[in-house]
Design a protein around this nucleic acid. Structure first.
Lengths: 109, 109
DNA sequence: ATAATACATACCCATATGGGCATATGTCAA
DNA sequence: TTGACATATGCCCATATGGGTATGTATTAT
């Protein structure tokens, strides 16, 4: 029952380094699969499978252009991830502040 | 060769819903394992294993207090994740703007 | 219609891993 | 020291999944 809630979601999708590379590669422009294959140095089927995962969670969109399938990162889908990590922002600011304060106190004999 | 680069990193660690729950639970205060077990409704060994993963990537820290092990979320370790998602922020803002513009143009006959 | 190009899927193998159970380890109480 | 309590690990099983190879499908070119 590995990875129980493998409710393939965005968090799971970006856990794969290759998929993060793909998202970055497709962030600014739509590109055909072939370009991604060339960029990642992976076999085409592997790339297609990663794209499938990213598509299923809405992290990329596709449109056909003749024989090519043009993929593009759907940046907005990354927003929830950004929001989740952001909930810890206030906390780490506070923690870093405490560390700083302690350092100053320690340096003051 | 599943999950090839299972170089257990923070991205991989937060892919598990339970681990995200743990991070949220431990965000503000340190807590003993028993509390986490009660909160998540998982078996103690499972919780310990999740904590182990989180510890290995530095997302939580521990300190012993008698028979208890007090865990706490190391919020700063989440920062890299926040930064990564942030790189897409400008892009999604731009994309949302374009969607808005199109909507306005379409409503204008 | 036929061939070639560009992808997507199916299938197989190997591995990573989550959950449960049993057990080892560490710490405090009597 | 013995026993109880709090965790951590070891072990087993089942499953999810990544990569590769072969093959199916769609679209353009001839």
């Amino acid at each position: 029952m590995a990875r129980a809630s493998t409710t393939s979601d965005a968090f799971n999708a970006i856990a794969e380094p290759r998929r993060r590379e793909i998202l970055s590669f497709l962030a600014f422009d739509e590109r055909p699969v072939g370009d991604i294959v060339a960029a990642l140095g992976l076999e085409q089927p592997s790339v297609s499978k990663h794209l499938r995962v990213l598509r299923d969670v809405g992290l990329v969109t596709v449109r056909r252009d003749g024989r090519n399938m043009l993929y593009r990162t759907e940046a907005a889908a990354i927003r929830p991830l950004h929001e989740w990590t952001r909930t810890f922002e206030r906390i780490w600011s506070h923690q870093l502040l405490r560390i700083k304060e302690r350092a100053e106190k320690d340096s003051r004999p």
